[in-house]
Design a protein around this nucleic acid. Structure first.
Lengths: 134, 134
DNA sequence: TTCTATGCAAAAATTTTGCAATCGT
DNA sequence: ACGATTGCAAAATTTTTGCATAGAA
């Protein structure tokens, strides 16, 4: 993408951000797009993509991958470090606050001689609704 | 895909499997395809995709996602449970044998009322080669 | 004016599918 | 002959890009 010197936070982009902010879980591009259209906004899908790029560049939004769907999700940046628990049945994504592998990272860094900058943990299973009567 | 009653392990598929088996890390479709072509095999990319579907269905191969590239990787199924450490610079993927979150899973299951069936952990950073002189 | 944002269409990248031909048993 | 595989081309999905136009500072 062409480098813009001074990207603007247009109303489209503010709306995209608001939508992400208000969602309880990470959202993907078509969810954002459809939600904005449904609530009366008129904008193009590519505007959503470019708006997201802009928000990511500005550090307002984080682009992440969850699940096995090969597409991107977005969440507000600057949240506490967290992980996800995902329901394989209904797709529910539950953010988790605690992180069980902080010390492990240190050990691993020593063992592998990697500088470890981060990690991604995703647990999967079946939520209580979906596992009722199983 | 159309359900085949009795999928066959053709030589194409055996070659695909062998390639995956011999790779030290998970491989993606185009790596498999190019490697097979380079070693003298003649086959179509869609044959690779279908062959992989077949191997996954047969339980010989596992389809996984690593990194932020929105594409699939494949590894031999039936390996010990493991995770990955990935270099953000050169793309090196290092399989890890130990798993630091087995007990965490139990706790979380109680706390969230999920039936937890698995998890995916990926650590990222810079390998010793890439971080030399940084 | 000058830089940026947008819509639209087209292209890219990865994966899937339909169909006719071929192969294996 | 029958069912499965393959090549090829086309489609589907998600994301990116080029270009002309509209918009904001």
């Amino acid at each position: 993408m062409k480098a813009k010197i001074n990207p603007r936070l247009t109303s489209n982009r503010a709306n995209i951000f608001k939508m992400i902010e208000e969602a309880a879980t990470p959202v993907c591009v078509d969810t954002i797009y459809l939600e904005l259209i449904k609530t009366g906004n008129k904008l193009n899908l590519s505007t959503v993509y470019r708006g997201l790029d802009c928000l990511v560049t500005k550090g307002l939004v984080k682009r992440i991958t969850i699940g096995e769907d090969n597409r991107f999700f977005y969440e507000v940046a600057g949240l506490e470090h967290h992980h996800f628990l995902r329901c394989l049945c209904c797709g529910l994504i539950l953010p988790l606050e605690d992180c069980p592998i902080k010390e492990y990272e240190k050990d691993l860094s020593k063992k592998t001689d990697f500088i470890i900058s981060g990690h991604k943990l995703e647990l999967v299973g079946y939520c209580s609704s979906c596992s009722k009567g199983v």
